[in-house]
């Protein structure tokens, strides 16, 4: 038998096992609980919810306006 078959089926098995393991791990470790907190995990005290973190150079708008955009 061509040895490439062993590589192909080996990788298929590895890939499948990894995907299933990932899902089982996610469920068991609580990743699928408390979605609200998960969504907030990218914010912190210095870049909190409510802060826009990107602007044109000089804080301009696309129309060339500057200043407070609150």
């Amino acid at each position: 038998m061509n040895p490439i078959y062993a590589v192909v089926w080996g990788v298929v098995a590895l890939f499948g096992v990894t995907a299933v393991y990932g899902l089982v791990w996610a469920i068991r470790s609580g990743q699928m609980r408390d979605f609200g907190r998960g969504a907030l995990s990218i914010f912190d005290d210095e870049e909190p919810v409510g802060m826009v973190t990107d602007a044109f150079p000089g804080g301009q708008t696309a129309d060339g306006e500057t200043g407070d955009r609150s």
């Binding site: 973190t53 602007a55 609150s70």
Partner: peptide, 11 residues
């Protein structure tokens, strides 16, 4: 910090 705009009421 790249340009950061304080956005009151953004959330």
């Amino acid at each position: 910090s790249a340009p950061v705009v304080a956005m009151a009421g953004g959330a």
